[in-house]
């Protein structure tokens, strides 16, 4: 047992300068991978609404008709799940925290006109994605020209909601209409462009299966 064991540390601490940073007079330095807030590159966004459906704290809203992406920065918990889920990789997490303010505000980004014109435009108005219910009710659907399908499976691998299934042995292509969110990624990725967005109501809301003909791959001579 001894006394004054802490004496040496105490005397050293008397002459040390403060370990704290004089913020906000001096700016704060965050390391490179720090998770501060989410930023979007709105030119690449296709309004597929996957980020809004999967946000754990319901901080995102996506309007497909108007082409906007809205974030409530005070509800966002900076977890990074939307960054991981975005199929076009247009979201990223950058350092820098939200400043305190008097009331909660939202920030909206709008897609440019050229990118809205290129997208598969539905003829009838669509309903915006209600967060965390999972299903977007829409009036258009994906349709396939079975003569051109190769059975390569690229559409199935790129579907963000696992709505497609391609079986080369059984020669079938099937789509689960209740899981399809009509984002159009399968149409973009198909090498023979055999799929299109049809602006009418789909025939059913369940699983539809089509027989494909496995068109031969044309070799370049």
């Amino acid at each position: 047992m001894a006394i004054m064991n802490f004496g040496k540390t105490m005397l050293k601490n008397l002459f040390l300068k403060p370990v704290t940073v004089n913020y906000p007079a001096e700016p704060a330095v965050y390391p490179e991978g720090s998770r501060g807030h989410v930023e979007i590159d709105v030119d690449k966004c296709i309004s597929c609404t996957i980020c809004a459906m999967n946000c754990p704290s319901d901080a995102l809203k996506v309007d497909r008709q108007a082409g906007t992406w809205t974030i409530n920065r005070f509800d966002c918990i900076a977890c990074g799940y939307c960054v991981e889920k975005c199929p076009k990789k247009c979201l990223k997490m950058v350092p820098g925290y939200q400043e305190p303010m008097g009331e909660k505000t939202e920030e909206t980004f709008r897609r440019p006109e050229e990118s809205m014109a290129k997208a598969a435009k539905p003829a009838k108005p669509t309903v915006t994605a209600a967060p965390s219910t999972g299903i977007v009710s829409t009036h258009n659907h994906v349709s396939i020209d079975v003569k051109k399908c190769l059975g390569c499976g690229k559409c199935m691998r790129n579907c963000p909601n696992d709505a497609l299934a391609v079986d080369r042995k059984a020669k079938t292509w099937s789509i689960n209409r209740s899981k399809c969110i009509t984002c159009g990624l399968c149409i973009d990725n198909c090498p023979t462009k055999c799929m299109t967005m049809d602006p009418n109501d789909p025939d059913s809301n369940g699983i539809e299966t089509y027989e494909i003909e496995l068109a031969p791959i044309k070799k370049k001579d």
């Binding site: 001894a2 064991n5 802490f6």
Partner: peptide
């Protein structure tokens, strides 16, 4: 250093 204080201080 601080372990000495926790374990041996009277």
């Amino acid at each position: 250093n601080i372990q000495k204080t926790f374990l041996y201080d009277y």
